[in-house]
């Protein structure tokens, strides 16, 4: 394969990755391991029924968009808290939960068990549906 062939291959792979990322961005995926997070670890009390725990970093622009979406979401549903924590000052928790980038939003049930995880800017309608089923259980 000549250089032009390799160039085309690089662009095709990058495009496939970009399209996959656009498709998966912010989707709430079920977390089957259900790790438990205590309020002591995040320094704030959990929500009565559920918690949206957002991991952010200082210079992350999509984190700001996420913050607005999550704040609006918890306003609409009673007993649900939105907690935003700085990933860099909670690196131990970041490693334990395998948080790879910011923003990552975890949906915790009333006991602090992780139910869903959304990497990237979450989709509000999907989030509301997932929250409703978590609270309904």
């Amino acid at each position: 394969m000549n250089s032009f062939g390799w160039l085309a291959l690089v662009l095709v792979i990058a495009s496939a990755f970009g399209l996959w990322r656009r498709w998966s961005e912010g989707r709430a995926v079920v977390d089957n391991k259900h790790p438990e997070i205590g309020s002591a670890e995040i320094g704030q009390p959990l929500g009565e029924k559920a918690t949206l725990l957002q991991f952010s970093t200082a210079f992350c622009s999509p984190c700001r968009t996420t913050k607005v979406i999550l704040a609006k979401t918890v306003d609409a549903i009673e007993g649900v808290a939105h907690i935003e924590i700085d990933a860099e000052s909670h690196l131990e928790l970041v490693r334990r939960l395998d948080i790879r980038r910011t923003p990552t939003t975890l949906l915790l049930d009333a006991q602090g068990r992780v139910q869903n995880r959304a990497v990237g800017v979450p989709r509000q309608d999907e989030l509301i549906a997932v929250l409703a089923s978590t609270i309904g259980e």
Binding site: V10, S15, R21, T57, L91, R95, R100, R101, T102
Partner: peptide
């Protein structure tokens, strides 16, 4: 580098930004 620059130009995906937390970890 070309793949990273192309992703940024075409998809507004910032590879360096995304690697930041992983590198810190």
């Amino acid at each position: 580098a070309l793949a990273a620059a192309f992703l940024n130009a075409a998809f507004s995906f910032c590879l360096g930004c995304e690697m930041y937390l992983l590198i810190r970890r």
